[in-house]
Design a protein around this nucleic acid. Structure first.
Length: 267
DNA sequence: ATGACTGAGCATCTCAGA
């Protein structure tokens, strides 16, 4: 009963991730997007509130929510229209736990699905950057454990990593930014090179695709964006990959998030 | 020019975002 058997029996599924930069500000955007795209599972990041403040109205659209909230900063959640079971609400293996709400792991549709908001690493000096690297090491260990158990899984979310120089517009980041420092990229490679598939790059190897455009300095108007929201697939899940794309149109709406949704379709 | 917007909150300024 390894991955091969589940692969043969699992139903088609649409997975998505979106850093909404406050769910209370973006509730209408998320509602519109759910109605239009109808993903089975949507992971949210930077909801910037605790569970009691999370909007209740998504149930009207057929979506069940589970919220891992935090006041003011961070906060993740999942919205799903298929049954799911919550397995973890913090990243296992961090040396002293995690005071910040950045991780949710569920099982749905025969898959382990992980939503992450990986630390940015530009604030808090060296300690802030060390936290990012520790978080990435624990995430790699979590992925390695799932691979060892032959558990089919996907990790979706805001990774706060530009994997290569093809993943940001020239001038959109400073050379020493925590999103592209060599240690950051090495940590990201050590995760992907366990045997995971970057869904967007697998289907669009050379495209200029961004998932984030800063609010400042006309970045959207001059298309100076970053590709930092990713979907990484375990081997048997990657075999089912049929589509993966950021929804750029979301950035052009009124009062948008600075990130757009990333949608992944599995056969 | 480590600036420019946006959001939250012990709020009219600070912190964080990336």
């Amino acid at each position: 009963m390894g991955e091969t058997h589940r692969h043969a029996t699992a139903p088609p599924v649409k997975l998505a991730t979106w850093n909404v930069n406050s769910i209370r500000q973006r509730e209408p955007h998320v509602r519109r997007w759910l109605e239009r795209v109808q993903p089975d599972v949507l992971f949210l990041q930077e909801i910037k509130c605790e569970a009691p403040q999370f909007p209740a109205g998504f149930a009207d659209l057929g979506y069940t929510a589970h919220v891992v909230g935090q006041k003011s900063y961070n906060g993740v959640a999942v919205l799903a229209r298929i049954p799911f079971e919550v397995k973890h609400t913090a990243l296992p293996g961090l040396p002293e736990g995690d005071a910040q709400a950045r991780y949710i792991e569920i099982v749905a549709g025969g898959l382990t699905l992980i939503g992450i908001y990986l630390p940015n690493g530009n604030s808090g000096g060296e300690a802030g950057y060390a936290y990012k690297l520790a978080w990435m090491a624990a995430l790699r260990d979590r992925a390695a454990a799932l691979l060892e158990a032959e558990t089919p899984f996907a990790i979706l979310g805001d990774f706060n990593v530009c994997p290569t120089d093809a993943d940001f517009a020239p001038g959109a980041l400073s050379p020493g930014d925590a999103l592209l420092r060599p240690q950051t990229r090495a940590a990201y490679r050590s995760l992907v090179w366990l045997g995971l598939t970057d869904a967007i790059r697998a289907l669009h190897p050379a495209a200029r695709l961004w998932t984030f455009w800063d609010y400042q300095a006309g970045c959207w108007q001059r298309d100076a964006g970053l590709r930092i929201d990713h979907a990484l697939l375990s081997p048997s899940v990657a075999e089912r990959l049929i589509a993966a794309m950021p929804d750029k149109a979301a950035r052009g709406e009124e009062q948008p998030s600075d990130h757009v949704p990333v949608l992944v379709a599995l056969a």
